[in-house]
């Protein structure tokens, strides 16, 4: 009984989050994205963003970005209280336009990487990370 109710609530929450996400995401990340792109159009593709499908704990989620030809890559977590995560700026001695780090996600959400290419164009990739709540005080 208890389980069923919780399950239902979780599902309801999931639906609510899905429908609310695009609006909230735009509002949340708009400022950071505009500052990074100057309002330029962002293409899909050209960026590889690797994240786990499910994170065992939202405190430490591995994120890897790779965008050949990029001068910088910004990572955003649009569902966090502050959407900014980090920006990799690649210098002349970078061996690849690649970076890997560990990030905090406050809940299940989309993680987005936007790459600024050497020619001034922009490209992005997004992936959803499900953040689980542990059983033991988590």
């Amino acid at each position: 009984m208890k389980f069923t109710r919780r399950d239902t609530m979780l599902m309801a929450g999931g639906v609510a989050a899905l429908s609310a996400l695009p609006i909230r995401a735009l509002a949340a990340g708009e400022e950071e994205i505009a500052a990074f792109t100057g309002g330029a159009a962002i293409a899909e593709g050209g960026v590889t963003l690797t994240t786990p499908e499910i994170a065992e704990n939202g405190n430490t989620v591995p994120v890897e970005v790779n965008a050949p030809g990029a001068v910088s890559i910004m990572v955003l977590a649009l569902g966090n209280p502050n959407p900014g995560v980090c920006t990799f700026n690649f210098g002349p001695l970078a061996g690849a336009q690649y970076g890997s780090t560990r990030i905090r996600l406050s809940k299940t959400q989309m993680v987005t990487a936007i790459a600024k290419m050497a020619d001034g164009s922009f490209a992005q990739a997004s992936s959803e990370v499900k953040v689980t709540i542990g059983g033991c005080g988590g």
């Binding site: 065992e56 689980t132 709540i133 542990g134 059983g135 033991c136 988590g138």
Partner: peptide
């Protein structure tokens, strides 16, 4: 087995 979302 799982306790909530965590594997025991």
């Amino acid at each position: 087995n799982l306790i909530r979302a965590e594997t025991l």
